[in-house]
Simulated scan of single mutants.
Amino acid sequence: MNGKIVVYSPGRANLIGEHTDYNDGFILPFAIKRYVKIEIEPSKKFRVFSEQIKKGIEFNTLEKTNSWADYVIGMIVKLKEHGYDVKLFNMKIDSDLPMGAGLSSSAALEVGVGYAILSMMNYDINREELAKIAHECEVEFVGVRCGIMDQYAVALSKENHALFIDTMTREYKYIPFHLDSARIYLVDSGIKHELGSSEYNKRRKQCELALEAMGKKSFREVTMEDVERLIEPVLKKRALHVITENERVLKTLSALETENLQLVGRYLYESHYSLKDNYEVSCEEIDFMIEQFEEYADIYGARIVGAGFGGSVIVLANENFERIFEKVSQKYTTKFGIIPKLLTVETSDGVFRLE
């Protein structure tokens, strides 16, 4: 076993392809240069300390605690199930990733913990397998029925690229992400969602019911005609979002190839309004922000990002955006009494060890 190891595990943003990853859809995420930092070294007990909340936990048994520690305990459990030896360790966790902002802090923690443990134990690390184990931790141990996007993006991303993933086949490819005249920004709305909330799992269930009603096994078999035949209005709306969002991802790929940022921006706005009206995962605060952004030509496009019900907005804009943001921020604060935060975003490699 090694001595102290330091691992940086990035957050992720998703350019487009929201709520499609658990529906056999297409997604286009990328890792960002904001990280969960994990220090690990061999110990005589399992000890984990969070710098962010100034709390630690010691444990001997690998049982659920219904706290943040479950992301660590769950990874130990899942690594062992996959045949990896996990010795006792002391772990310190810190982060500059805002919690609850839709930037996938939980996947960053899971993948980072797994990478740190495997590094400490001197295993060769297969990043795809690590992503799958982290996904199992989230779904089976923590209990959030998320898709694979977050764990894949955190484990597999490459700087200056987006990661196009077909979630049905789990195949992926790197898409050059050169914006030149534009930048990606993330605006933290200050409204926090709980990803484990009943609404998220409810959306998954509604998608399953929509497939059942259409007599299909996967949304990849579904046509617009199938959707039109759905009688139950809510199921029709959910299905409509999934198949149109898949189309938008493919159209965004084409627009990126020709560096047509106006088109990419249009698809972002279209995605937002589908998430608002068809998937119903937006909120008043974020809708207000998007409406403000639409008034400025310097902003190509924007949409809610992440699970929804708050979190962040991803924005594609030129460098005048910071000035525009100040104006919109003042209106937002006046209306809602909340100060939004602006994060500039740079693409990052996936999880890595500090050598």
Rank of each mutant, 00 (worst) to 15 (best):
N246M: 10
M1Q: 13
S95Q: 09
A107H: 03
H178I: 14
V281P: 01
S197M: 00
A182V: 11
E294M: 14
E225I: 03
T20D: 05
V139A: 14
N278M: 10
K341R: 15
W68N: 06
F164L: 15
D180C: 07
L354C: 00
N246S: 04
A108N: 03
L103D: 01
K331E: 15
H19W: 03
I191D: 08
V313A: 13
L240G: 00
F352R: 14
A182P: 00
K237S: 13
A182N: 15
I5G: 07
A307S: 14
E58V: 03
M149V: 06
T334A: 13
V36F: 13
Q206K: 12
P233I: 06
S119K: 15
K205F: 05
S198P: 00
E346M: 12
Y200G: 02
V111F: 05
E322I: 15
H19K: 04
E322W: 02
T252F: 08
K236S: 01
F293D: 06
D24V: 01
I290W: 04
L235M: 08
Y296Q: 10
S329Q: 12
F26K: 03
G25P: 04
S312M: 02
K202A: 10
C207S: 15
Y279D: 08
E247H: 06
T223F: 04
I231C: 01
Y35T: 08
E39P: 01
L268P: 02
S254W: 01
K251W: 00
N201T: 11
G337W: 11
V154M: 08
I175S: 13
A108K: 05
L250H: 03
N260K: 07
T252C: 10
G308F: 04
A13F: 00
G143M: 11
Y300V: 02
E291I: 00
H241S: 04
L211P: 05
E171P: 01
G306E: 07
F288H: 10
K55I: 00
I133Q: 10
K44I: 13
F89L: 10
S106N: 07
S119V: 02
E228V: 01
F141Y: 14
V264M: 07
N23T: 07
N2Q: 14
P233Y: 07
K335H: 11
V86T: 08
S274G: 14
G311T: 11
G310H: 06
A239H: 01
D166S: 12
F288C: 12
V345D: 09
D150H: 12
K327M: 12
R238P: 05
M289C: 04
L195M: 07
R183L: 05
E110F: 01
N320L: 04
K64L: 07
G147T: 09
V281R: 03
D21F: 02
E322D: 13
F352E: 08
E322M: 10
E58M: 02
R204D: 07
Y300I: 03
D188N: 15
T61H: 10
Y35L: 08
S104Y: 01
V249Q: 05
A116E: 11
F219Y: 14
I324P: 05
A101K: 07
A131I: 06
Y172G: 11
F293V: 03
Y84E: 12
G215E: 04
L109P: 09
Y332R: 09
N201S: 14
G100A: 14
R248T: 04
L263G: 00
N318T: 12
E322F: 03
Y279W: 06
Y123K: 05
E319R: 13
G83M: 05
V222G: 09
L268I: 01
